[in-house]
Amino acid sequence: MHRIVISEFMDEDAVALLRARFDVTYDPRLVDQPERLAAAIATVPALIVRNRTQVREALLDAAPRLRVIGRLGVGLDNIDITACAERGVRVIPATGANADAVAEYVIAAVLILLRGAYGATARIAAGEWPRTALTGREAQARLLGLVGFGDIARRIVPRAKALGMRIAACDPLVNDHEIRRNGAEPMPLDRLVAEADAVSLHVPLTDTTRKLIDAQRIAAMRRDAVLINTARGGIVDEDALVAALKGGRLGGAALDVFESEPPEEPRRFADVPNLLLTPHIAGVTQESNRRVSLMIAERVATELDRLE
């Protein structure tokens, strides 16, 4: 019977599906205990992770029998793909399984930030009545700029259009015809950043996208524009973003991902106006967790069957 180690949380039904056929070690604490994790995978052919488990050369060296890694999500920056390929380890992401959850998160963040009316509970409970201060903006007719035009960005398009928004997109890997065919206007990055009322990021973290939204590009944005990052931490210059929000040079921002997770200096985000922070959960809902988990359980099982 093949053995599988699961180092981060997974839907219980998916874990049960695997346990019916394999010897499964399911311990979400392993992600914070690298020595225990290395020992646990020393003789196993399969490992299932989310985004926090760092699958680098040292961990791979500790698991010479490893043949498949299931990723409960789509980003692969926590996995050394080259090192896996050199060792004959197949990496399987849950492509598409959480895309709808992220798309809904982006739309919600755009609406919350544009309207600016949903943080007044404490003030009203304290006896204030700040109607004038909470006069926000509508999404209708606003320009939403999508940086990166993969599966998630394309799912955002119909949702945003249902609100009457206009959509622009840029992606060096997608031609203009394809962007138009999927309902968006092709637009160069710097023009998109300068003209959009809301900018949402959907690119992987690479050498070319690190600090893609830096101080210069943030300064080029409209003063009332909003920025949403559900892609990867490091694409936005966090210090520059905080400075712009504190200085009133940007309308708002939502960050679901950070340069380090959890952030190494979380206090720098305290008391920053019009900033929404969430702990890398844009793609995590009850429904998406089940879809992601079952997809990876089935694909890892299929891969293990091939080893027999």
Score class of each variant (00 low, 15 high):
95 T>G: 05
95 T>E: 11
95 T>R: 02
95 T>S: 06
95 T>F: 00
96 G>L: 04
97 A>R: 12
97 A>K: 04
97 A>P: 00
98 N>R: 05
99 A>H: 03
100 D>K: 01
100 D>Q: 11
101 A>G: 08
101 A>L: 03
102 V>R: 08
102 V>Y: 05
103 A>T: 08
103 A>I: 10
104 E>D: 15
104 E>R: 01
104 E>T: 04
105 Y>M: 09
107 I>D: 04
108 A>K: 02
109 A>K: 08
109 A>L: 06
109 A>V: 03
111 L>G: 04
111 L>I: 14
112 I>E: 12
112 I>N: 05
113 L>K: 08
113 L>S: 06
113 L>V: 02
113 L>R: 07
114 L>C: 04
114 L>E: 14
115 R>Q: 14
116 G>Y: 04
116 G>D: 09
116 G>L: 07
117 A>D: 11
118 Y>F: 15
118 Y>H: 07
118 Y>M: 12
118 Y>G: 10
118 Y>W: 12
119 G>F: 10
119 G>L: 10
120 A>F: 03
120 A>N: 14
122 A>I: 06
123 R>M: 03
125 A>V: 05
126 A>R: 03
126 A>I: 01
127 G>E: 10
127 G>Y: 00
127 G>F: 00
128 E>F: 01
129 W>P: 08
129 W>N: 10
129 W>G: 01
130 P>W: 10
130 P>T: 06
130 P>F: 13
130 P>L: 08
131 R>H: 13
131 R>D: 03
133 A>C: 00
133 A>M: 02
134 L>G: 07
135 T>F: 03
135 T>Q: 12
135 T>K: 09
135 T>I: 15
137 R>F: 14
137 R>N: 13
137 R>G: 05
138 E>C: 11
138 E>D: 15
139 A>D: 00
139 A>Y: 08
140 Q>T: 15
141 A>I: 00
141 A>H: 12
142 R>M: 14
142 R>N: 08
142 R>S: 15
142 R>K: 12
144 L>M: 15
145 G>D: 12
145 G>S: 11
146 L>S: 06
147 V>P: 12
147 V>S: 09
147 V>Y: 07
148 G>L: 11
148 G>Y: 09
148 G>E: 12
149 F>R: 03
149 F>I: 13
149 F>Q: 09
149 F>P: 08
149 F>H: 08
150 G>R: 00
150 G>A: 10
150 G>W: 09
150 G>V: 08
151 D>Y: 00
151 D>G: 00
151 D>V: 15
151 D>L: 15
151 D>S: 06
152 I>Q: 10
153 A>I: 09
153 A>V: 03
154 R>D: 12
154 R>Y: 10
155 R>G: 13
155 R>Y: 12
156 I>K: 00
157 V>G: 00
158 P>L: 01
158 P>N: 11
159 R>H: 07
159 R>A: 05
159 R>I: 02
160 A>D: 07
160 A>Y: 02
160 A>V: 10
161 K>Y: 04
161 K>N: 09
162 A>G: 15
163 L>Q: 01
163 L>I: 01
164 G>H: 06
164 G>K: 06
165 M>G: 04
165 M>A: 02
165 M>N: 06
166 R>Y: 01
166 R>T: 08
167 I>V: 15
167 I>R: 05
